[in-house]
Each structure stands twice: as structure tokens, then as C-alpha cells.
Design a protein around this nucleic acid. Sequence first.
RNA 1: GAGGGUGUAGCUCAGCUGGUUAGAGCGCUUGACUGUGGAUCAAGAGGUCGGGAGUUCAAAUCUCCUCUCCCUCCCCA
Length: 453
Amino acid sequence: MGRDVVKPKGARGTRDFLPDQMIRRQMVINTIKTVFETYGYEPLETPAIENLEVLTGKYGDDEKLIYKIMRRGLDANNLPPLHEMADLALRYDLTVPLCRVVAMYQHQLQLPFKRYQIQPVWRAERPQKGRYREFYQCDADAVGTASMLADAETLTLIHDVFRTLGFKQFRIRLNNRKILTGIAEYAGVDATKAMDVCIAIDKLDKIGMDGVIGELQKRGIAPTAINKIMPILEINGTNDQILNDVATLLENTPTGSQGVAETQELINYLQALGIPEANCGIDLYMARGLTYYTGPIYETIVEEPNIGSLAGGGRYDKLIGMFLGQDIPATGMALGIERIIDVMTELEMLPPAKTTVQVIVLPFNAEVQLEALHLIQELRTAGLNSEYYYNLNDKMGKKFKYAGNKGIPVGVVIGPDEIQQGTVGIKNLQTKQQETVSRTKMIAVIKNMLDRD
RNA sequence: GAGGGUGUAGCUCAGCUGGUUAGAGCGCUUGACUGUGGAUCAAGAGGUCGGGAGUUCAAAUCUCCUCUCCCUCCCCA
């Protein structure tokens, strides 16, 4: 009747998660949480909004992707300059909030502080497959130690998470910012151009050797430097072999040598921790987010669906110093659960659970209402997730159809006949087989039926 | 931020170079079937053709703007 309605529309780049999706998300998140806690990480949450100044100056160019929140009570007729209109912002990642927390509570926290944090973050990007404006990150970080043991533990944690989730084919690519700096130095590239070298060689997988040469030229790297850089990209073999080769090349660059030493130490720990090289190998051209990483860096990829990296991280020894004026070393990683779920869905690694309801009670008619209500409370007391069918006057066919469409595994039927005989009908809604059992055996029969699946 | 594609019923889509009441399959509702579902048959409901403006006697169809989703680049999870 011409009522004005608002068009239901989600904000761009955001999603709603209906129950069948939430069930799978929660399975993945719970698995991740469990593994995090197994490694001794403790939970932390921080607010969605931060003071804008906490976030600025941490992300380089990406800063323009931060969602800013306007000051309250602005006078539309007398607006301040644009850069003064916002004072708050939605968090962009979980690492910077962690650094803020460490800086604020350093005397309350026992260092090293190992925390995990699973919360949404926001980025004002153009949405694409596997890329959203609101998405969850699962971070695990260790703050307060410069030891490569912490990095080794982080990598082991990543390995364990993917294994536990059921991934067979995945690879953690490992590198070190100091090695990258060393490569630039060794090639005679000016320190101000080192970043350009990283960005260019990081594209190797996408554009190939010739592409990288072109990219380096485009970025104004001298031909002599390019001639020294390219052979490094061809180094391959086992982790030890790669390290040996690059160690000789970089032996005269202090930073590079330090990076090699760090990586060697890390590799030794990983061997002792039982991480196979097939799942964790050195890629000298992998560069990643160059803003705040200072040591080991890594990302996790799967070959099958091409969706970008599923996890990334590294050491950032200078970031907390931006809040304290004094550095506290830190290292950690972020899992992208959205992408992990996308990949697991594509590879059919997640069970097709549609509902968390295990049993539905289908009373035959209104006559048995009270007895049926007794019955459902019995089920609930026994710990079974139980739904009650409200519209008693519906035909039995409709009731069963509802239960089947919802994916509920077991239906319990109770009518006048059953009450008279002290029984219930228990139907396996998948096989459509129904049996009549006495009320006293009901719980046991249902639990048995659920266990079989 | 740059470039390209897309948008028709709840879902997947058809609709030729603009021409009467916009279609199909699946799904949904009801009935054949007053103690049992995903089968068959019959009937039925459901669309501002993403939104807005324009061209035209006439627009789902052509033009412009805008939004959505998707794909490259960039960057990331």
C-alpha cells in the first residue's frame, strides 16, 4: 500500500553471515583459537575505534585507506579544514592497537607478552574477490623478545594451524628484511632506492625474470646493479644451500650478514621443531609490506585457488618505540580467515553443516502439546540442541519438509498413539528411516544416531 | 586511485537490430493426500526489468549519470 521502505542494502565491501556460513566460520575460528592457546598465546581485545593519531604514520601510503570518523558536533556553517574534521578512526589492523596496548600497560604486562586477537578490521579499499572493506584478522604476536625463538614459534604456529585445518598443500615463504637491505647494498643501490628494488623483485612470481628487469629499469636502478641483483634471484635449493650462497655474496654487507645469521638461526630452530622444508622455504625475492618490518618476514600461500596470501607476518622491532620513545622488539603474524574460509570452501574441506540444531520435535497435533513440551525439555536437559515445531495444525508432510530443508538430522514424532504406548517415533531425516522406541530409551537412541554421522 | 565487464521473479538465466498484457527452469504456496518430507499431476502467488535523467509516438533494449558485484593494475589478509 505504498508504504515508504528503505531499500535493504549492505554497505559496499561488507557481508552478512547467515547461519550456515556462521557455522563454518566458527569451526575455523575455534580451531585457530585452540591452536593459538596450545602455543601459550593469551586473548586480547581492543576497541574498533582508535584515536586517529594512534594510527597515522604507521602504514605509509596505505594511510589513505583508513576510515576516519568525523568529530561530533561540527557546525555545518563553519567547518574546520579537512585534516581537522576527523579525530577518530576505525582500526586498520590489529598490530598497531597491540603496540598501543603494550606501550600503555607495559608495567602491568609480563614480557614477553604473547597475545592472540581475533577481531574485524576496516580498510577503505575497492572490494574484490578475497578482499573486503570489513574483514577479520587473527593475529598472534610475541612482544618483548628479540630472540629468533619467537619467530620460529610463530612459524611453527602457522604450520600447525594450517595442518590442523586440514591443508595439505601450503607453503610458508620466508625471507628477511635485512637480507633484502643487504642485497640492495651489495648491488650498490642507494639506500633511498632499496625499497624500489624490493617492490620490483617481489613481483618475480607474477612477471618473471624479464619483467623484473624491466621493472628495475623503470624504477631507475643502474644496469650494473641489475646485473648483480638478477643472479641472486636464481639461487635455489634447500634452505641451507640458499643461505650458503647468499651468505657468500653478502659477506661484506653488515646488515645482509646479520640477516643471513638470523635466518640461519631460525632455520636451525625450525628443523628442531620438525617443520618440513616443503612447507617452509626461503624465497629471497619475497618482500611484503615494507613499512614496519625489520627482520624475518613471511607469508603463506596455496597453489590451488589463486587468491593471494592466507597469512603474513614478520618482526617489527621499531613499531612500539613510536609510542614509547624506546624500542621493544616484537614479532607475529596475521591469518586471513576470510580467505582461508574461501579456499577451504573451494577445496570442499568444510563439512556441509547447515544448522546447529540436532533434533526437532514434531508433535502430531494440538492434543499432545503438553506432553510434547515435556519431551523437548528432556532432550534439552540431555544436552541435545532441540527445536520445537510451533504450527501444530500443519500436516505432518509439511513438518517433515521443514525439518529436512533445514538440515536437521533427527526428528522426534509424538502423537496420541505414542503417548498411549509410552513410545516416540525417531526418524533419521537423512535416511528417512523411522523407528518406534520407548520413551526411556529415546535419548540413547538419538545420541547413537547422531554419533554415527 | 586507473581501466574493463555485469545487474531482468527467492535462485540460475532467456528476451534478436527499441514495438501490444516481460518469459523458462528450479524454488515457493495450495490441492489430489485429515499419522510422515525432498516423486508425479493440477492450479496459483511473485518483477518500480539495480536507481535516476534523457532521446522517441514507443525503452528491459539506445545515450548520460549513479550504485552493486566481478575482473585486471596497485596494494594487501
